[in-house]
Write a protein that binds this DNA or RNA. Sequence first.
DNA 1: CTGAAAGCGCTTACAG
DNA 2: CTGAAAGCGCTTACAG
Lengths: 345, 345
Amino acid sequence: MNEQPRGTRPGRITIRDVAADAGVSVAAVSKVLRNAYGVSPALRQNVLTSIEKLGYRPSTAARGMRGRTFTIGVVLVEMGNPFLPDVIAGISDACGADGYKVLIGLGQAQLTLEESLLDSMIDHGMDGLILVAPRMSGETLEAYARQTPLVVIAHHEPSPNAYDTVNSDDAAGAQMVVAELVAAGHSDIAMISLLVADDNSQTHVSVAREKGYLKAMGDAGLEPSARILRMTGDKDLRQAQMRSFLSAPDRPTAVFCWSDLFAIELIGLARSSGMNLPSDLSVIGYDNSPPATMPLIELTSVDQNARGLGGAAATALLSRIAGRTNPQRLMLKPTLAHRTSHGPA
Amino acid sequence: MNEQPRGTRPGRITIRDVAADAGVSVAAVSKVLRNAYGVSPALRQNVLTSIEKLGYRPSTAARGMRGRTFTIGVVLVEMGNPFLPDVIAGISDACGADGYKVLIGLGQAQLTLEESLLDSMIDHGMDGLILVAPRMSGETLEAYARQTPLVVIAHHEPSPNAYDTVNSDDAAGAQMVVAELVAAGHSDIAMISLLVADDNSQTHVSVAREKGYLKAMGDAGLEPSARILRMTGDKDLRQAQMRSFLSAPDRPTAVFCWSDLFAIELIGLARSSGMNLPSDLSVIGYDNSPPATMPLIELTSVDQNARGLGGAAATALLSRIAGRTNPQRLMLKPTLAHRTSHGPA
DNA sequence: CTGAAAGCGCTTACAG
DNA sequence: CTGAAAGCGCTTACAG
């Protein structure tokens, strides 16, 4: 539907212009650009001056055809999660230091779109990819990893082959929460988790948190009262589930929510139904996201060090781009941010 | 620090492989790929079959060198704003229909990074760019617009030359809010806005909302009591400002907040200081973002139709890529989402 | 240390 | 309708 030719803009300064201006060969300019071997300081200075003077910027497309693009792609499933900005910031910081640029693709919660995005990024010649909480299968991930350096964040694949995983130690985070509540005198502690429907649910962070919760409850001798309520991603349905949970006769004295989002919702519903928090109910969340610090919320929450996750993933990816092939499974320790949403039993 | 050559992966299927498999020329394959003129249905079918069979995908980098990349770049200043996901969704939908992919860059609130991102996207050969709430000057925008098709969302540039602007009618939104509050019997209505420090503050959406507020107050004969409090972006400082606003003797009966984020914070602070809402204070926000619907918040808020903004911007960009050069200034009508955060005076 | 030449995978006039 | 050839702007062996 659009016929006007575009291609390289007419005015674009190319490596040839720089070479001509500096009175050297195109190859020499390329070497200076890449900090490659065998250029005299004089020539280098010459070229640098011309680059500056002409405002030259290499075409990523052209570079991508033979060398690298100095760009890495980050694929997000959705943008709503408040911990994503910090992950991205961590990635950007670590990449920027090496001259890499970060471009983001959004999966929009559609598996096909997510995969077509990966294809597209590979087609763009990106030097490597970081996926955050992907939903695809382990085989699909392996297949992509054979095509490009790949690192996955927030996805507990037990034994990746051709790619790396970077996770917060979600089980440890859950254990910290239970320990905190037990220390405060609670013995009836429930967990509200996420109902994950797809086939790869076992790799979801919520499952790792559930395991940590169960382990900690067992360790504290509270196994009999341990219970996990998996609630839906649909907001309206979920609020109905929460209301009935709150009004049930066997309501616990404390709740560990797999995410801040759920925890904040629960707090709102509890208060609006006349409950007094934290005296009637202690709530602890996960993510230590900005809304956790809101007045009237003041949510105690596990901080998974989102920035650290991003940084570690970027570092891993860069080393993979540099040639490493053995898979790494990185695990960062979470911490607990104490606020006033929980109290003594 | 990394020496391993990469370039095009060894296994990559190229247009040449497809041509060989289909028994036609490379040029023929290229034409089929682009739906270009002059290919017989038979040849086309042949080529399509081979493409399918070999799993061929054209290299964006190579295409970018001569034609287009079928990729558009979206630059966001930050990711925190809850209305961004819908904007992106709107863009993606509109672009996807035309076979375009969307790649996102994040400015991280640094002007230089923002501009280097634009450079990088242009270097990537992206066919066009959409900027959301950029902070750069009008001249800088014009300069970029000379290099690539450009559309700007949520930025009130009075007379763009080489690019298009797509905005919600922020003044109208503010007027709707005031009208709603006046109808409910309020006459002492303050506005809490954002303190914008940089040189291009006049183009910020908050300023357009302020103008609408002042206009509506004047129209209602409430000019004497109109007042705008511009609060800082720094969270802690802002909360202090809000507290003193709430405890001041001349506290109004209703507040219009320039964003949901501010409104929700204000509600939390008001409640935690013992006020009863909405009887003690009516609050209306702007963005109609997900948190506005939270229990205990139930914030009445202006919906700027984020998805529509994204869609309109994408459509504009596509028509620009197709050759249009006259500037467009699009303005979408907002609507008011009624909830219970405001009541009679 | 320096440069000429081939080639990356496409698209685009241009012939046939 | 079809294809051979040039060229997009780089990088990479390879000579000199």
